[in-house]
């Protein structure tokens, strides 16, 4: 992994710092990095294995833990595809057409990122809860949304709402409309253009957005906590199960279940890095983008 080649900044006398300064800055960064990022990550696994592998395995295959894993997978399996479809539709609408109110729309799409997760949960309690707008009607028809699985799914959709759209919009903006225009001129229908021209161009960006969206969907805590009602075995996702175990002072089990989420985070980062390399490689291999960059 060590590279002896210098960066273009280091080769240039005007943009390089003295060696002692460089290594001091690297040193500070690495200490900060190790202290703030590596240490918490390692501690999750160390605490999880404190009582040995047997206890670790028992904490994970325990029925309530398995139920929480199942619910987390269900919530992600519904919310990620819905936000994927939305992200593609929103990116198509914003990058292929000019219309008034486009900037407002862009701001509104980003809105869930600047709302506290707790407030994200609260809004669904206000709409669907017992005292909420639709509460009496839902109650009369025996439909449960808050303190049940649909509420958890809704809260998860809200907090992961912008991820895919946010990756796709700048990407499709940069790629422009020339290729799609050519397809349309040659007689391709809208769907043909989308499946055969647009989708292959945006596939890495799409995957990137989906990975980030999925990581957040599986790990969301605050919003889900508000709408869940914490019914063990029924409305607990993995992060909520971690909280319950922790508050019961069952630390080893809490960290064992948390380590699943930590592994998921590491997997997410690995796939994300791989996608970044692929995107980078493709940009350098693509003659059209190369040409655009030279202009």
């Amino acid at each position: 992994m060590a590279t002896n080649t210098l960066s273009r900044f280091e080769k240039n006398a005007a943009s390089r710092e003295p060696g002692w300064f460089k290594w001091a800055l690297i040193g500070i960064s690495l200490v900060f990095f190790a202290f703030f990022l590596l240490l918490p990550l390692f501690s999750v696994f160390a605490e999880a294995l404190r009582k040995g592998w047997e206890a670790y395995w028992q904490a994970i295959v325990e029925p309530d833990a398995l139920a929480s894993i199942k619910l987390t997978l269900i919530a992600a399996a519904i919310s990620v595809p819905l936000n994927l479809i939305f992200g593609v539709a929103a990116a198509w609408a914003i990058t292929k057409f000019d219309f008034r109110g486009k900037h407002i729309l862009l701001t509104l799409i980003d809105l869930p990122f600047s709302v506290s997760p707790v407030i994200a949960g609260l809004i669904y309690v206000l709409v669907f809860g017992a005292q909420g707008w639709f509460g009496p009607w839902l109650d009369a028809h025996d439909i449960k949304i808050v303190f049940a699985v649909p509420g958890i799914v809704l809260a998860t959709i809200f907090v992961t709402f912008p991820f895919v759209a946010r990756e796709l919009i700048p990407l499709m903006e940069a790629q422009g409309c020339e290729e799609e225009e050519a397809a349309t001129v040659l007689g391709a229908s809208g769907w043909q253009t989308f499946w055969k021209v647009t989708l292959p161009n945006i596939k890495w960006g799409l995957l990137y957005g989906v990975i980030l969206c999925n990581a957040r969907a599986m790990g969301e805590f605050g919003a889900v906590s508000v709408v869940s009602g914490h019914i063990r075995g029924f409305t607990n996702t993995i992060p909520l199960h971690v909280e319950i175990l922790y508050n019961e002072y069952n630390f080893a089990a809490a960290f064992a279940v948390a380590s699943i989420l930590a592994l998921l985070a590491l997997l997410t980062l690995a796939v994300k890095t791989w996608v970044e390399w692929r995107m980078h490689a493709e940009i350098h291999a693509s003659p059209i983008i190369e040409l655009q960059q030279q202009r």
């Binding site: 990550l41 599986m218 805590f221 971690v242 922790y246 989420l261 985070a265």
Partner: peptide
């Protein structure tokens, strides 16, 4: 960004 907040909290 990738590590769930509850895990960060207890760690």
């Amino acid at each position: 960004f990738a590590l769930p907040t509850a895990v960060t909290g207890i760690a």
